[in-house]
Design a binder for these strands. Structure first.
Lengths: 266, 266
DNA sequence: GTGCCTCGTATTGTCAGACAACCCGCCTGT
DNA sequence: ACAGGCGGGTTGTCTGACAATACGAGGCAC
């Protein structure tokens, strides 16, 4: 079974091996717990040297995708053990045609719970440059909204850039890295969401409101606005809040913000 | 300069090379942007084969710690580019004697902002098994509190286990992985905190209150209790909330929870 | 003197082959 | 029946070589 990786030469062979095997693992060719082919078998099937095969396997092992034992072989790890906070892993998942629905749900749940908080932090800490990034992203979204959304991903891309800009606006290393790492995963969710929506103006308006709250340094309003954006996305994704349990948590917080009396919550 | 890695044999050579070079990078032996020794020079200095050296370098490159160019060599990346959400990187940072204070601050800021939310999510989603893990961790903490804390890390270890159990209680893949990945980093913060505190009973009591709120499925109370724990830790770490800007964000939320009327907040 | 071209050197990427360390199942001897 | 040795199989490490690329020195034409 000659897969002949060597067609593409702009990437190290080991990375291409890792990517190919990663897709096979995602496709279910090898189930968790199964033994993968030995290094020599992979050498034959891919038509590369053992050094390159080992390079690819090491890349997968360092991310918890596989585990290797001297004298025993290589086994596929359970998906729970995958280091899903690694850029390569998230890229792999985003590229895959049919990502595990559980994972899409997990990612959206995380965003639903975290992004309001992130927006509140950004409202406190964002600097002028961060606002510029957000504004540019929104302007680009508006410019693309006239065209057919399903045709190209430019609208989705700028949508994602906007959300990433908010994470960066927290000026915290961990939140910033989270945005960078989850970027492919966020793209996945946002693309799906934008594919099913029929009205982009609403999306655009909510994003603008969120940016305005951050600009006004109003954490409570930013929390609320981000929650509204996420609710809209949830509707487009056809995810009923409460199905999973997690998404409804931030709701009382938003309600409390409206009721409470610290910040000027609208 | 024979560093003679081969003393420890219970770990692959490549990983030992990576760890040694990682510590050198953290120590400032090579500054970001500098060129690292060539593979052949490392072969001589470590006394291992080029294959092992390459294995170690690849492990570092895959985590954004170094970047390699054909025909040019290897350069040290800026710390901002490090994939700090990788277990090996966080382990490296935790092992290092004097981790960058900026990073410790970032990690604590992140926890300060996120853990109240995580606690609220756990209050919604935690199952009986998660409560068992929390209770066991607290019992172990209580058992260790009689001994000298500075002497051994058992108290700290169980403290960290408690926090990790809360993350797991969210039943969300991303939060769960975050806890796993940040475990060494959390240990770093908790150990420092526990070293400087003189009264462990207070720490224990607040942890118990947090667990009780989660047990009672009261997100608002859990949010509040977690905030109290984090404030205590901040005090022990001698971090004035507001110094960095980020930590003060959750405070108004806590205030709103106390003022608001959804859950039985304490 | 200056600018361009070429070639050599240095470095990482890839290949090939071999041995070492280790695990497992089989087989033999008691 | 059971214990121990033994051999095949797999990953880890070593060695040596060549390929691909980048940079700089040197020569050459103008």
């Amino acid at each position: 079974m000659k897969q002949s990786i060597s067609a593409n030469k702009d990437q190290p062979l080991g990375d291409q091996i890792a990517e190919a095997l990663g897709h096979e693992l995602l496709s279910g060719t090898y189930r968790p717990g199964d033994a993968l082919p030995t290094e020599m078998e992979l050498v034959e099937s891919f038509g590369v040297s053992r050094a390159s095969v080992r390079s690819g396997l090491q890349a997968l092992a360092s991310r918890g995708i596989i585990e290797r034992f001297v004298g025993q072989g290589t086994i596929a790890q359970d998906f729970r053990d995958w280091n899903i906070l690694d850029p390569m892993v998230t890229g792999l998942l985003a590229d895959h045609a049919s990502p595990h629905p559980d994972l899409v749900r997990s990612i959206f749940e995380f965003r639903y719970s975290a992004e309001p908080l992130v927006a509140a932090l950004a409202a406190r800490n964002a600097r002028a440059r961060d606002l510029v990034a957000m504004e540019d992203a929104i302007d680009d979204m508006a410019r693309c909204s006239s065209r057919d959304v399903a045709a190209d991903d430019s609208f989705t891309e700028h949508d994602v850039s906007f959300h990433v800009a908010i994470y960066r606006g927290t000026h915290n290393a961990i939140w910033r890295h989270l945005a960078h790492i989850l970027r492919p995963a966020i793209t996945l969710v946002v693309r799906r969401s934008n594919e099913t929506t029929e009205e982009l103006r609403e999306t655009l308006a909510r994003h603008r409101a969120l940016m305005e709250a951050i600009r006004m340094r109003d954490p409570a309003a930013a929390y609320d606005a981000a929650l509204a954006v996420m609710r809209l996305t949830a509707g487009e994704l056809d995810i009923a809040p409460g199905t999973t349990g997690a998404p409804e948590i931030p709701d009382p917080m938003g309600a409390l913000f409206r009721a409470g009396g610290t910040g000027a919550a609208r």
